[in-house]
Design a protein around this nucleic acid. Structure first.
Length: 942
RNA sequence: GGGCGCUUAGCUCAGUGGUAGAGCACUACCUUGACAUGGUAGGGGUCAUAGGUUCGAACCCUAUAGCGCCCACCA
């Protein structure tokens, strides 16, 4: 017996365990479905239709078409957040759906080593435990610590994904730093280097002074800043105060424009005024640039200025980069600390003076007084010292964007270093073509534009990181700096020996690769590459990638490039893009804002099923979703509803019948629900095929709650409680069958409760030989019948109408009323008689009678062509009934007016589709009939 | 500066050419033999604005306003 109360938190872990024991999700092990009652019920006569036969046959042979999804690997030491919940729910919906459709499904799981993020966590732990930092303990010891942390916490996220119900093939779990995947990384690096697509270069990079590593453009986030300091030279009201400046800048280090006077070398009493938002960089200036056509400065080009504080003479150069409209038209050039200035410097052969060290402190290139200062302290000092020299013209607030590290949060410095780059522009060419020609398709399609936009403007990808946790770059250096790139040290050594003509000691490049480098190989490295494994042959290209819009550049684009470069085929045929999970107010969730909802807490409170359903139902076509706990609660209620429906079935001994054929049932109500089931199954299937999980989820919801529970189960209560054993037995079997279809259709969204209810029914019917998750997806044909729909539709409409009248007339719920059909045609009499018991029960009638004319003193209701009346006799008051009738008449007349507007329009008659015209005419006729009858009823009331 | 998206019921959102929808919230009634985590009924919208296309526009086009996101730039 099912428990009276539905307790997801108890059921779900147990079910997860059963799946695990049964190894239910292992790829390539598709069992032959269709044995036993359940499979045959679904297959029945229905499975033949809609092209499902082929798939069905494949499934039956256990040899379905491959369907592979690779998981976006979460950080190995991470913990589940709502973004994961959304992403993995959607994947699991598709995966379970396709598995039930008989495909050979591989959902490939695994985790990412997440270079910076993980190293950061471990460093923080060391600091918290007051242990020596990584530099003190050395590389090997530190990396060992990280592995230890991975061993300790690495299972967390995987267990959380299992808790969510993810049906990955967990036997195939991979990690980006597994030996095989690491070998793939090395091979790709070496080959791309060999092809000249990976190279080393000295240029400006985005340097993160906190982590002391280079980062890629994508890892830099621009933050808008506006300062508040207003000061001008000679401003008597606001004397310059160094202490005040220091305090203000401590709060607000960015957002100010500073104007400096640079004295001309030839005549120090004359100045060129330059403006900057980063005063400290002036210590590394090597020129001042003006526009060649700027008449204000034509005489000065070729002269030099004395760089204040430093004393260097630097040239005034003419360069188109300078914009006469901006600032003073003269711009200071700091080639080693600004991306634009770097280019100007190259054009004019200017010195690249690097004034910062790795931590963002000033180095030996600056005058002694500034050495060792932090960049922001140096900013204060430079401004103050220039003021002391009378060379500070003004400070004003300005709005500008300041680059920050997305992980560290600190201000990024353009810094001159040697780094490894990948020529993404070259690799992008084929990746662009593959989307243009549809080899890979984005869903929704508009994200392709975003992809193209970025790919067409792609910059060299800086792939080296000055970290210790990650794939160390397979490059070795000789004593003279000669580089040897090789798959193994022995190969590098051999190459060096050949190069130098004698054995030569080498040092390995200490840097590691960007985490996204190994992630880019994920769709084939997880399948065994560089080995040509059977999995690789079978599952690559993968069928579908499901991922958030925020990592299209980071990951999707790079997988496209690498997949094409190394497999010659796209990594996935479709990319389903979803949005981000925001809080109820539409803000990003973040720990600092305190608006983070913990999915684990939600699962404990409402069940993983409810959380999953919420995610699937809210996810609409790549748009961000606002998360609401209320929604989860609502879908928990839905699960409870289903639970109780199953209890009802159980109480009424609705057991599955062997060889039940939904096409063979006789009773109209049973035939009707079979047709409704076919319709629902088709709707859900179509929606899932179109990657509209929200539609699919809502269609299941409406079918189960609105159609199955609210109508069908209520309608057949008379059968189940009646004496006609044949009808009763057929109904029991139909209830059981329909419930099975509900469980199947809901399974991808709510796998736990459906699996539980499925298994539970075993003791009442034919024993199951398989889990629901491996059963067949419902596909039916020919169960719907227009005549049956009309008949049951009439019952439904009649009951609704009587209920409505009762409520509006304030007839108490307990009062049973008579219902009189007026001048009913034979077909109506027939229907009303056949369903009298059911109608009476649901509409709370004392009985149904027939009359030629409407009784006096009666409320009248109109259902389609039928008129019926509830005699008043002290039940209702005339005024209320009159008002009600008038309201209905008015409503009908408004609709008639709309129809007339169309039908009287010659253009409509001439140009509209014939069906549209017919429909409008029919509708008008029906409305006219209603008005007539309602008016007659109103008249009788006086 | 470039690109993308959004604006529909109190709230969150579906709806892409033919009678405006859902969930939640709200109101009234209901311990009806699965379910009060429930049932029944009901109120509530000139579909941002202005033009245009069309027999017909929430839907297609143009413009405007507001909001959001992404990319680039920032002396």
């Amino acid at each position: 017996m099912l428990e009276k109360t539905f307790q997801p938190a108890e059921i779900e872990p147990r079910i997860a365990n059963e799946w695990n024991k049964a190894e239910a999700f292992q790829a390539g092990s598709a069992k032959a479905p269709g044995r036993g009652a359940a499979g045959r019920g679904a297959a029945g006569r229905g499975a033949a239709g809609r092209g499902a036969a082929g798939r069905g046959a494949a499934a039956a042979s256990g040899n379905g078409e491959p369907f592979c999804v690779v998981i976006p690997p979460p950080n190995v030491t991470g913990s589940l957040h709502l973004g994961h919940a959304l992403n993995n729910t959607l994947q699991d919906v598709y995966v379970r759906f396709e598995r039930m459709r008989g495909k050979d499904v591989l959902w490939q799981p695994g985790t990412d080593h997440a270079g910076i993020a993980t190293q950061m966590v471990v460093e923080r732990q060391l600091a918290a435990a007051k242990l020596p930092g990584r530099r003190e303990m050395g590389r090997d010891a530190f990396v060992e610590k990280v592995w230890a942390w991975k061993a300790e916490s690495g299972g967390t996220i995987v267990n959380q994904l299992k808790r969510l119900g993810c049906s990955c093939d967990w036997s195939r779990e991979r990690f980006t730093m597994d030996p095989g995947l690491s070998a793939a990384v090395v091979k790709v690096f070496v080959e791309l280097h060999g092809r000249g697509l990976i190279y080393k270069d000295k240029r400006l990079v985005n340097w993160d002074p906190k982590f002391q590593t280079a980062i890629s453009d994508l890892e830099v986030v621009a933050e808008e800043k506006r300062g508040s300091i207003v000061w001008a030279d000679g401003d008597a009201e606001k004397p310059f105060d160094v202490e005040a400046l220091r305090k203000a800048l401590a709060r607000d280090p960015s957002g100010h424009m500073y104007h400096f006077r640079y004295p001309l070398s030839a005549d120090p009493s004359r100045f060129v005024v330059v403006a900057t938002t980063r005063p400290e960089t002036m210590l590394g200036d090597s020129a001042v640039a003006v526009h060649p056509t700027d008449e204000r400065y034509t005489g000065l080009v070729g002269q030099t200025v004395q760089l204040p504080l430093v004393g260097r003479d630097i040239p005034i150069v003419a360069d188109e980069y300078s914009d006469p409209e901006k600032g003073t038209g003269a711009v200071k050039i700091t080639p080693a600390h600004d991306f634009n200035d770097f280019e100007v410097g190259k054009r004019h052969g200017l010195a690249q003076i690097n004034i910062l060290d790795a931590q963002g402190k000033l180095n030996g290139e600056v005058p002694e007084a500034y050495r060792g200062l932090d960049r922001f302290e140096a900013r204060v000092r430079v401004v103050a010292d220039l003021h002391a020299l009378g060379l500070l013209a003004k400070i004003e607030p300005t709005t500008h964007t300041v680059p920050h590290g997305d992980r560290s949060g600190v201000v990024i410095e353009p810094w001159l270093t040697d780094q490894w780059y990948c020529n993404a522009g070259e690799l992008a060419k084929e990746a662009i073509r593959a989307v243009e020609d549809g080899r890979t398709e984005f869903v929704p399609k508009n994200w392709e534009k975003t992809y193209f936009e970025w790919m067409h403007n792609i910059q060299p990808w800086c792939i080296s990181r000055q970290l210790w946790w990650g794939h160390q770059i397979p490059a070795w250096y000789g004593p003279d700096g000669q580089v040897f790139v090789a798959a193994a040290e022995a190969d590098a050594t051999a190459a060096a020996t050949a190069h130098y003509g004698k054995p030569t000691p080498l040092t390995r490049d200490p840097d590691v690769l960007d985490t996204w480098f190994s992630a880019a190989l994920w769709p084939f490295s997880t399948l065994g590459w560089p080995d040509e494994t059977p999995e690789l042959a079978r599952y690559y290209p993968t069928a579908l990638l499901v991922t958030g819009r925020d990592i299209i550049f980071f990951w999707v684009a790079r997988m496209m490039m690498m997949g094409l470069a190394f497999r010659g085929e796209v990594p996935f045929k479709k990319v389903a893009i979803h949005g981000l999970v925001l809080d109820e107010k539409g803000q990003k969730m973040s720990k600092s804002k305190g608006n983070v909802e913990d999915p684990l807490g939600l699962m404990d409170e409402y069940g993983a099923d409810a959380l999953r359903f919420t995610m699937a139902a809210l996810s609409t076509q790549g748009r961000d979703i606002r998360f609401s706990k209320q929604r989860v609660e609502g879908y928990r209620n839905f699960a409870t509803k289903l639970w109780n429906a199953a209890r009802f079935a159980e109480m009424n001994e609705c057991v599955r019948a062997k060889d039940f054929d939904p096409a063979g049932v006789q009773d109209p109500l049973n035939r009707w629900i079979a047709g409704e089931t076919e319709r629902a199954a088709r709707e859900v299937t179509d929606a899932l095929e179109a990657h509209r999980t929200n539609h699919a989820a809502i269609a299941v919801y409406e079918f189960i709650w609105g159609t199955f529970c609210d109508w069908y189960l209520e309608l057949v209560k008379s059968h189940l409680m009646g004496d006609d054993e044949a009808v009763k037995n057929e109904t029991r079997a139909t209830v059981a069958w329909t419930l099975d279809q509900c469980l199947k259709l809901l399974h991808p969204f709510m796998p736990f409760i459906t699996e539980e209810l499925w298994a539970h029914m075993v003791e009442y019917g034919v024993a199951r030989d398989d889990l629901l998750c491996r059963s067949t997806w419902p596909v039916f044909e020919g169960l719907a019948d227009a005549k049956i729909d009309a008949e049951v539709g009439f019952v439904v409409a009649l009951v609704s109408e009587v209920r409505s009248v009762r409520q509006e007339m304030n007839i108490s719920a307990g009062t049973k009323v008579p219902l009189v059909f007026v001048a009913a045609e034979a077909s109506v009499r027939d229907r009303a008689t056949r369903h009298e018991e059911t109608i009476s029960r649901l509409a709370r009638l004392e009985g149904i009678t027939f009359a030629k004319t409407a009784p006096k003193e009666a409320a009248v209701l109109v259902v389609g062509e039928t008129t019926a009346a509830i005699p008043l006799k002290g039940l209702i008051d005339f005024d209320a009934e009159k008002k009600r009738l008038e309201k209905e008449i008015a409503s009908a007349e408004a609709d008639i007016a709309k129809m007339d507007a169309k039908l009287d329009n010659p253009n409509f008659m001439a140009r509209a589709k014939p069906e549209a015209i017919e429909e409008s005419q029919a509708r008008k006729a029906e409305l006219l009939g209603q008005v007539k009858r309602l008016s007659a009823a109103a008249k009788r009331l006086g």
